[in-house]
Design a protein around this nucleic acid. Structure first.
Length: 294
DNA sequence: TTGCAGGGGTCAA
DNA sequence: TTGACCCCTGCA
C-alpha cells in the first residue's frame, strides 16, 4: 500500500480519500492510544495533530478530513493513520490464533496511529494510575498553557507544548493542569530529554529491549509507559504494553489463571513476535469494551 | 449531603 | 513486595 493507492478529491476546506480499508474511527480513536480527539454529535471527530486541527469522518471506504488539503494528506495524514500498512495481512497472520481471531473480528478497524514521540512520552507519563477523561483534561490544559495557539477552522486550538517550555515551567503552575504527582515527572523528564537533541534518534537505533530500558531511566516512565511510547509513536512495534486490562484479558483468554507481568511479556514475545503491538491493540479494545474480568 | 474507595503505574523503602 | 500518590467519579 502506498500513497498512490488512494484516490484524493479536494472539496471546500477538506479532502475525501477513497479506497480506505481496515479502518474504523471508533476503533482507532477509542482504543486508548490517543487523547486529543473528541467525538462530535454527528459521529465525526475533532482533533489536533502536530500543529493542525482537523475534523475526520468515515463512510463506506471514504475518509473525509476537514482542515486538510492534498499536500497535508501526503505530509501528515497518510503517515498518521498508518495508511501505508496492509492491516488485512496483519489480521490474517494474527487470526491463525483462534483466541485472537475473536478479538480481531471485534476491533476489525483498529490501526496504530503514528504519533509525535514527545507528545506520547508526556501523555503516557500522565496516564499512570489515571483515567482517560482526566488524562485528556490534563493534556488539554498543558497545551492551552504551554503550547502555541494555532489558527484552525474549528476555532482556536493549541499545539502540544515542547520540552523546553515544560522543563522550564514552574512546578506550582504545572500543577494547575491537574496532573497531580505526575507533574514533577513531566518537568523532570522534559528537562532530561530536552538536553539530548538526538534522544529520539538514539532510541530508534536501539534494539527494542534496550529502547525500553533507556526510556525507563526517565522519571515517571516504567515498563508500561515505555511500551506505550514506543508503540504509539511508531518507533517499535514488537512491544506489548501490559496494563490492567491487557493483564486481565490475557489471564482470562490464555492463561486461565493469574499471571505475572513477566510471564505475559514472555508469552507475547513468543506468541505474537514482531506483531505483538498489533495483537495488544485488538486484545485491549476487546477487553475494555466487553469489560473482561470486571 | 458527606465520606470513601479506587483507577489504563511508578517510585521508594 | 508493598504502600503512597493527585484528582475525580461513582456509590453507599
Amino acid at each position: 500500500m502506498n500513497y498512490n493507492d488512494y484516490k484524493l478529491t479536494e472539496f471546500e476546506n477538506g479532502i475525501e480519500v477513497e479506497n480506505i480499508r481496515d479502518f474504523n474511527l471508533v476503533h482507532i480513536l477509542e482504543c486508548g492510544q490517543c487523547f486529543r480527539w473528541i467525538k462530535q454529535d454527528d459521529g465525526s471527530y475533532n482533533g489536533i495533530v502536530r500543529r493542525r486541527a482537523a475534523n475526520v469522518s468515515f463512510k463506506d471506504d471514504k475518509l473525509y478530513i476537514k482542515g486538510a488539503n492534498e499536500k497535508d494528506f501526503r505530509d501528515i495524514w497518510f503517515e498518521y493513520f498508518d495508511l501505508g500498512r496492509d492491516y488485512s495481512l496483519i489480521k490474517e497472520k494474527l487470526s491463525k490464533d483462534a483466541t485472537l481471531k475473536k478479538a480481531i473480528e471485534f476491533g476489525y478497524g483498529i490501526r496504530l496511529l503514528k504519533q509525535d514521540f514527545r507528545e506520547m512520552l508526556i501523555s503516557f507519563i500522565i496516564s499512570a494510575n489515571n483515567r482517560i477523561p482526566m488524562i485528556m483534561k490534563t493534556i488539554d490544559a498543558l497545551s492551552k498553557n504551554y503550547g502555541d495557539e494555532i489558527d484552525t477552522f474549528i476555532g482556536n486550538a493549541y499545539s502540544f507544548p515542547g520540552y523546553e517550555k515544560l522543563s522550564k515551567a514552574v512546578l506550582e503552575e504545572l500543577e494547575m493542569c491537574k496532573g497531580g504527582f505526575r507533574c514533577k515527572y513531566i518537568k523532570e523528564t522534559s528537562g532530561v530529554v530536552q538536553k539530548d537533541d538526538d534522544y529520539l534518534l538514539k532510541i530508534t537505533e536501539l534494539t527494542t529491549e534496550n529502547a525500553r530500558k533507556e526510556l525507563q531511566k526517565l522519571p515517571g516512565v516504567g515498563p508500561k509507559v515505555a511500551d506505550c511510547v514506543l508503540l504509539y509513536s511508531g518507533t517499535k512495534y514488537d512491544v506489548f504494553p501490559t496494563d490492567v486490562w491487557v493483564k486481565r484479558v490475557m489471564e482470562e483468554l490464555y492463561f486461565k489463571r493469574e499471571a505475572s507481568l513477566k510471564e505475559i511479556q514472555e508469552f507475547s514475545k513468543e506468541h505474537f513476535g514482531e506483531l505483538a503491538g498489533f495483537a495488544q491493540q485488538y486484545l485491549f479494545y476487546y477487553a475494555r469494551e466487553n469489560k473482561i474480568g470486571r
